[in-house]
Computed example of a mutant assay.
Amino acid sequence: MRLASGLLCVLVSAVSAQSSSDGSSPHHVQRRDAKPQSNYTGVIGTKLQAFPTWFVSAGSDVTIHCKAHTDRKKYGDKVYLHLAWTDMRPGNRTKKIVASRPASAGITYELNPVTHEHQGVYTCDDNGSLPEVYVLDWHSMLWVEDAPPKASMDVLSHNRSQFFSNEAFTLGCQLPDDNAPWKMMRFNDWTGTVTECPGQVSSDHRLSSTITPVHLDSYILYWCENPAGDRSNSLNISIASVATVVLESPPLPVMEGEDVMLRCFQRDKKTKEISFSFHTSYYKNNRLIDNRFGRGPFDQEGNFTLRAVTKADEGVYKCEMPEAGDSFDSWLSVKARPVEESKKKSR
């Protein structure tokens, strides 16, 4: 169905906290430690991690850890943690418990090797046997990549995947030339739910949606799918509300040999004005990027450029501004240049 262009998809959702490559972000651990406003005798905070990452290819080995990282009243021997799996395939959102152990011991669950049957939403929670103890649950999605995906998802309005709350951005999904009823979907990792994004505009084999997020610091996963289970690539969008800094970096994989510019923005808490500063530090895999490497000079605006990137430049990047703090993590993916194209460049 064709809808009027410019229709807003306004997402008013619960706060979420998506795991990054190391399983968490400092913003998220702090929020999940927050004690609920009720008369509970104890609070247990959970943490859900996957190694190497939550985004894998079929055939990879993945280990999922469900554990308690906060248990001040020592209820861990009495409370059992459940690791639950929910199928994410269209029309088949079934849920089942895959492992259960005392919170003090934690759960280690191995998928060796991963198949498309393993993908879905994993939840670290308790069994509810001690209602006087509040257990903060944790949700993450295991995404098994399709090679190649049937549709292509991208950020149309910006060259980044990090945004401030109430900052509008537009997502687009280029669809194949078929008659399948494709839909744009989202995963909220605070609630652990997969829902259709409302307000989608369909035109010329493309879905688009303009989104104005209204929630606290969060990550939300977006993709397109059809009833047969065909999917696009996924986009992990982070929203900064409590945080006041975002990083601009390519949301999709870049080709080897290309230059990649990183840029850091901050938003004033009072005026909401967005600006950048020369006094910015950039990090890769939590290590400060130093000019001594000679491949990423700063320019006059404080941007940082990675020259002629290779697979060695692939990793987790973030930026930091004095007094404003640091951004979320962003994964920079570098894909190999096709052999024929590489031969032409070398001539």
Rank of each mutant, 00 (worst) to 15 (best):
H215V: 12
W138G: 00
H215A: 04
K269R: 15
G192H: 00
P253C: 06
L175V: 12
L7H: 00
T271S: 15
N233P: 08
S249K: 09
G294S: 04
A4P: 11
K318P: 02
N303W: 02
I44W: 00
D290G: 05
D177V: 14
Q119I: 14
T86Y: 01
A168M: 07
D313T: 11
T170W: 04
R263Q: 10
N159V: 14
V245D: 00
A308S: 15
D178V: 11
A84D: 11
E248R: 11
Y317N: 08
A151K: 01
T123Q: 01
F169P: 07
K78P: 02
T195R: 09
S24L: 08
N286H: 04
Y219F: 07
T310W: 05
G199W: 00
Q18E: 03
P322V: 11
S330Y: 00
L8F: 04
S161D: 06
S232M: 01
G106T: 13
E256T: 15
D87S: 15
R292M: 08
F276D: 09
G294E: 01
N291A: 05
A68Y: 14
T94E: 01
E132F: 06
L216Y: 12
Y75K: 07
K95Q: 09
G294W: 01
D71F: 09
C9I: 03
Q119W: 12
T280V: 09
G128W: 04
L81P: 14
H116P: 10
F293T: 11
V246H: 04
Y219S: 07
N92I: 13
K311E: 14
E341W: 06
P338E: 10
T191R: 01
S104I: 13
D137H: 09
S24T: 14
A17N: 12
S333C: 08
D61E: 13
V214W: 13
Q119L: 13
S21F: 05
K272S: 11
T305C: 05
V10L: 03
K95V: 11
S140F: 04
S281E: 10
Q266L: 05
D125L: 13
S20D: 03
G192N: 00
V334R: 00
T210G: 04
N127K: 11
D290H: 11
L235R: 00
V242K: 11
A243W: 01
G172T: 07
V316M: 06
F278W: 05
S21K: 06
C224K: 03
E225T: 13
E117F: 12
V155I: 15
A105R: 12
